[in-house]
Amino acid sequence: MTEVLELRQYTLHPGKRDVLIDLFDRQLVEPQEAAGMRIHGQFRDIDDEDRFVWLRGFPDLATRAEALAAFYDGPVWRAHREAANATMIDSDDVLLLRPAAEDTGFDLPATRPDAEPSALVTVTLYHLPPRAGDEFAELFVREVRPLLADLGAPPLACLRTEPSENDYPALPVRTGENVFAWVAAYADHDAHLEHIRKLGRSTRWTHDLLPLLTKHLARGPEQLHLAPTARSRLR
C-alpha cells in the first residue's frame, strides 16, 4: 500500500483562524482518525494570519473515499460543519500527494501532544512540468536528502503529486499540478536561518545540486513557514 496525503491550505475570514483551530483541535481530530484517516499536522501560516494549513493521510487511494465519506456524512461533521465553514473563504487549495520513494513518508509519534510548541515547520514545494519528476525525485532522495540531514534539517517526508483522479469530488483538489515537496522541522526561527546559512556555505549545494534541481523546474520554489498548533503531531 502507498499512503496518500492531502496538503490543505485554507483562506479564512479575518480574525477567524483561532476559532477554527480551537474547533479543529477539540472536536475534529479524533473523529477523522476514527473514520480511517491520520491527521499528521495542523498549522498557522506564519506569513499570513488568515491562512490555516493542515496535512492528513490515508492508507492508500482505495480507502480515501471511504474514509472521507464516513466522516463527512457522519454525525460529528454534521454537528460542527456550520461553525467550521463560517470561518472559511476558500478550502479548495488542496494538493494530493504520495511519498516520493518507499522510505520517504512520515514517521510520526503515535501519541498526540497537547501543548503549544515553539517550533517551525517548513514545506518546500518544487513545481515541475507536466508528466515530469522521476529524475528530480530520484536526485533529491539520493543526493539532496542526505545533505540536508548533514546540515541539520533531515526531511521528515519527501512527497510528490499523486496523479490519480480525485475519487471524492465533493472535496476538490488542485488539478494540473505536478509538485515535489519536502517537509522539515526546526526548534525555532533562528534554527531555520542557521540552516539556510549552512546551505549557502555548502559548495555541494550551491555549485552541484542546486543547478541540477533548478533545471527541472517549471517555476520558482515555494516555501510555507508554519507554526504547529497545540495538538499537531508534526512539530
Rank of each mutant, 00 (worst) to 15 (best):
D73F: 07
D114R: 14
I89V: 14
R142P: 00
G133D: 11
G133F: 01
L151D: 02
D103S: 14
A70E: 09
P59M: 06
L120A: 01
F52R: 03
A62C: 00
G105A: 12
L125M: 07
R131F: 12
L159Q: 01
R142S: 12
A100V: 04
P99S: 08
C158N: 01
D60I: 09
F71M: 11
P113K: 06
P113I: 07
E165S: 13
L95P: 00
E162G: 03
R81K: 15
L148F: 15
V123S: 04
L68M: 10
E102P: 02
S164V: 00
V76L: 13
A100G: 09
A62S: 06
D103N: 15
F71G: 07
L95K: 11
P99Y: 06
R51N: 08
H80C: 06
V53H: 00
G105K: 00
L128N: 08
N85R: 09
R81E: 13
Y72L: 14
A137G: 06
V121F: 05
R98C: 04
A132L: 10
D103F: 10
R160T: 13
Y72I: 09
T104W: 00
R78S: 15
L156C: 05
L151R: 06
D167Y: 02
A110T: 14
P172T: 08
E116H: 02
P163N: 14
V123D: 06
N166I: 05
L139T: 10
P59I: 04
L68F: 01
L159P: 01
R81F: 06
L68N: 01
F140W: 08
L139G: 05
L120M: 07
R81H: 15
L159G: 03
A69R: 15
F140I: 07
D167I: 09
G105E: 02
G152E: 10
R142M: 03
P129N: 14
A132W: 05
R56Q: 10
E162Y: 02
W54A: 00
A65I: 01
L61H: 14
A101Q: 12
E165Y: 02
R78D: 15
R64M: 15
E82M: 07
L159M: 08
H80N: 11
G74C: 11
T161I: 11
E102Q: 12
W77L: 11
I89K: 12
A101S: 11
P154F: 08
V173L: 02
P109R: 03
A65P: 07
E135T: 15
G74L: 09
L97V: 05
L55H: 03
T63K: 03
A119W: 03
G152W: 12
A84Q: 13
A153K: 03
D93G: 01
N166H: 04
L139E: 03
P154D: 02
L97N: 00
T161L: 13
N166D: 08
G152M: 08
D90R: 07
P99D: 06
T124P: 03
H127F: 11
D134E: 12
G57N: 02
T104H: 01
L125N: 00
A84V: 05
R160Q: 15
D93E: 13
P130F: 12
T111F: 05
P109H: 09
D150S: 15
V144R: 00
E82H: 12
P130V: 03
A84H: 13
